[in-house]
Structures are given as structure tokens and as C-alpha cells.
Nucleic acid binder design. Sequence first.
RNA 1: GCCACCCUAGCUCAAUCGGCAGAGCGAUCGCUUCGUAAGCGAUAGGUUAUCGGUUCAACUCCGAUGGGUGGCUCCA
Length: 609
Amino acid sequence: MADNGNVPYNQTELYRIRHSAAHVMAEAVTDLFPEVRLAIGPPIEDGFYYDFDLGLDERGKPRTFAPEDLERIEARMLELLRENAVFEHSTMPVDDALAFFAGQPYKVELIRDLAAGKVDEMGNPTTEPAREVGIYRQRDFVDLCRGPHVARTRDIRPNAVKLLRTSGAYWRGDEHNPQLQRIYGTAWSNKAELDEYLQRLEEARLRDHRRLGKQLGLFHISPLVGSGLPLWLPKGAVLRETLESFLRQAQLERGYLPVITPHIGNLNLYKTSGHYPYYKDSQYTPIKVDEEEFLLKPMNCPHHIEIYRSEPRSYRDLPYRLAEFGTVYRYEKSGELTGLTRVRGFTVDDSHLFVAPEQLEEEFIAVVDLIQYVFSTIGFNDFRARLGTNDTDSDKYAGAPEMWQRGIAAIRQAADKLGLNYSVEQGEAAFYGPKLDFIFRDVLKREWQLGTVQVDFLLPERFDLEYTGEDGQKHRPVMIHRAPFGSMERFVGILIEHFNGAFPLWLAPVQAVVIPIADRHVAYGREVAAALRAAGLRVEIDEGSERMNKKIREAQLQKIPYMLVIGDKEAEARAVAVRTRDEQDRGAQPLDAFIAAARALIAARALEL
RNA sequence: GCCACCCUAGCUCAAUCGGCAGAGCGAUCGCUUCGUAAGCGAUAGGUUAUCGGUUCAACUCCGAUGGGUGGCUCCA
């Protein structure tokens, strides 16, 4: 946010500008489409929107905005801004407001909800029934609104406002409600800020992982294979496998046990676990085999649970930590798919820890510690933690209330002990228990859930899990579900954007490219490449007859960390002339010295070259 | 799934009002052998996503299907 530090956004001038711009846009739409019914139009991060109901067209279908409409609306809006009207605030008793807005059904619904003390325009609960409502007026345009607004339309610079796009949006965010026409716009204090914002959008477009994924040969999505089912190309696969080995090693060091489970499972397994009813809508239809039904697995937990149950467990076995890069399949609506970040088949760096109740806190802390280690090694620092709790009004959650309280308390205790900053969000839990999520923000400012840790008292009960305690009695373990990367697909997608394709040396699919200057240097170049390969480096050699400059350019575009230029001098001295992708010509150094230095950086997983 | 928009060579994009489908990059083949971001030339490459319609004539207009993009809903 381009705003001064500690002032809450909704108290800033920018917020008022955007809120007011939304009103002026609604005024413009009302001018051009007199029959429009207004829904809501709040400021949002970087801009504002307003939702409209345009009624039905000649064919009886809901009328929508055409791209030309957007231009007309923007033009009208700019005219209105130049007229410099005053934003007048007033209040109106509820009954008067209902009468005044009688032709505006959405406003009437909002007023009724305010009067009933239910929810405000954004769906947040209100504290008490309203007896009067706020009204803002500019010229003849009157809107239900609690403000705040700028004083006059002059306070909005016409050259710092731009309408961006239209979209459909459900009334009150519920897909069972009618779909409204939303217009998104952006507004800033001045033209320079607007330009900077547009520039930022362009930069984000350039580092979009779908674009870079193609450019760098990382992954491919073929309609013939299926939407949301990415194919990992050799370079993408190397990157992913490097991440996986890194985590595997960290897990081995922490006492995790690898397991492997199949991609489908009997439907009864998911009925027992309770996943089936909760995930019904997001699963592929069951596959009928003989008389039984099988599900493409949407989750790994039940399989791991069956491994736990494969023999009697003792307290001496606990914590019992099973880990697997388990591929799961979930049906996502076609419009929800996006590159690698939202797919239909993905691999979770999954683990299920079966612990004695008294081990819960310590083990939870160890898991969070692992996640932080993974994130910091990779250089992911722009993330936040969120404690997802259940919503007691919802039927999305299973299990006794005290289970939830114990789980939430355990997470809070562990997080506090770690000094972790987190927000609490109701309704963000898994169906079986509360969770602590690590949420990363990408360059487009979209938030993505990556790592997650979940405390689960429910599945141990559903599957009647037990272990024999020191006292010789049967006890019930607690489960921790966790995934530091979350999904390999999403994580790599974010990773591509985070590094703009210029991965740290240890992750780079090609770590060095050998560039012979002329054909006579190819023989020595091959020797260099072989030496690097023997030392465990991922190396390519560019043997083409192009000029060195061209080879360098191509390596730069591929964002290869090291370019090793080989000419007469190097061949003679058994050296390499090192250039990094940061455009630093480091001059010649002995081949062995380069290899030793590069190996050290890789071993340290250094972020710098 | 819903709303809007988009789909032309491997990639990025042209093609006026409906009138013979083009460029750069990449690929291939020559020539060139070069010291830190594009050497020169030639060749190949297309049922304009698919199917249907309107028209003397469709990349262009209309419809359906598929895929994609931005939102909505949902989510690792």
C-alpha cells in the first residue's frame, strides 16, 4: 500500500478518494443507464469497484457491460469530476430511507439488514440495530453510505483515475444469488502514482510464472492431457526434485519416515475418514471397479493412517512421523484453474505425525521450526501466518467442541512460545481441526496459502487409532498434518515469480553454461563441462557457430547463473572466464577454483552468486 | 460452474470497409570463428482453435464447442 505507515487504510485520503471515485462512477453509470440498480461500491486495495444490476436486455437475458460501455462510463466520469460537486453527508431515518430507495432493491435489502442489526454492506456483523442510515449526495446522485468521502469531486484528479475491467460478481458473494456486473477502477492521489501503479501491473505481467514457465522451459499444460494437469519439463522437474531432496534430507534429520501410497483408494476409506461428504464437490467422480468404488485420492491422510494401523503401536514408537510427496487430485471448477498455482492434480509434501497428547506442543513447535527453516533457506520472507479456526455456526466442521478448543489452545501456545505473529481467522480451519497456515503474497498481491500445520483429534477417533502407553493401557494419539511447501506445483509457481526466474544457484535448472568463443575452443569447453558435471554441477555447453555475444545473450535470457567463456587464454591456462547473470564479468579464474567455489555455494544453498 | 474478453507459423505479433495470409525471433542448411546481451544469407513452416451458418467472396460477420485471460465463487 502506498500509504503512510500506521494510519489504517480506511482513514486515509486515498481511501476517501477511491470511495468517492466509486460514487462518481455509479453516478456516471446511472446517467448512461437510468434503469440501473445499484448494489455496493467499496474502496479496495489499489482501487475501488461498484456492482450494478442492469436489468434484462431485449432477449430477456441479464444485460452486461460491453468494453465500449466502459469507455463511455469513464468519459462521463471524467466530465462529472471536472464539474466539481460537493459530497454532502446527511442521515435519514430508516423508514424514510426505505421509501427513498424504494426503486433500489439492493439498497432496500442493505437498509433492512442495518435496521435489523444484522450485517453491514460488507457482510460484517453490526453491533446494534440502526435507527437511521448514512446518506451521501453529490449533485442529484444519492447513495446509501457511511463514508467517508472527499469534500468535493475536485479532490479526485481526473488523470489519476482509470477504469480497469468489468466482471461478473454475485450479490453478497453468494453464487446462489443473482450475478451483478462489477466495474473495477483504480484511483490515486496524482498521475505519477497512477502511472507507477500501471507500471507495477506490467512488471507483474512480465514475471508471471506462466510466461516464465514457457520462456524457461519449466512446465507445459496441454489441453489434450487436460486442464489443470501440468507437465513438468526437464528443467522444471530438476527444480522440483531439488526442492524435494532438500526437504527429504531435512525430514530424515528430524526423524521422519518415508512412505509411498497409491493414487487411488477405496471410497470406503474416505467415508470412514469423513473426507467424502466434505470434499464431495471437489473430487473426481468415483471409479467403479467390479463391485467397488474407488476415488482418485484427494488427500493422503487416510492412507498414512492405515500405515499407522498396520500394526499395534507403543508409546515408544511415538512421535511416529510418516512423510510422502503424495499426489492428489481434486476437481476444481474450470474457471478456477491458473497455471501451476491452481491445478487439478498436485503433489503435497505431506506428512502425518502421530503423537501422544503430551508431545503435541513440542512436536508442533518442531514442525513450525522446520517450515521456517525451509522458507528462510529459500529466501521466502514475505509471508504471514494465520490461525484458522472453526465457525461454530457452520456445518463444515466435524468433531466435539472441546476437541477444537484443545487444538486451538495447542496451536496458540506453540505459536506464542515461538513468538510467531499470526492473525486468527474464523472459518479457515480444516474440517477435522484448526490449522496454522503460512500465506505468501505474490507479485500481483494475490495471497496464496503455502505451508500448513493442522492439529487433528478427529481422525484418530474416526479410525479408532491407539497406542499402548507406559501404563499398559490403550491411549489415543493426536495427529498433526503438515506440509511446508503446501503443494509442489503452487510452491514452484510462486518461486518462479518471486525470483523472476533467476533462481538461486542450488535451485537453478542449469547452473552454468560453457561458451566457447570459436570452434577451436569446443574441445576444451567439453573438458570443462565434463569436469563440472563430474563435480555434480548442472551444466550445458553452447557449441553453436554463433558469436559469443549471442551465446551470452541467450544465457542471460535463460537466467543461467554462470557463463563460462572459453577462449585461447583460458584453454592454455586451464581456466574459465566467469560471467554471472547479474552482468558481472569476473575475469578468468582457474577451473578448479571455480568448481570449488561453486560447489561451496551450492552446498550452503547460498542466495548470492 | 458464472460474467466479460481473447485464440493467425514453435514463440511474439501484423493483415484498412468482408476481396490472393505477412514480419521478427526460433528451427534447418550454408557462409562466418568472432573476447562479455542479437554476424550474414537461403530454406522449410498455416485447412487463421474446431464445427456449422450468412455471403459472389470470411482471419474478418453470426452461432455452437474446446482452450486461455481477468474477475466472481471455491481452494494446497
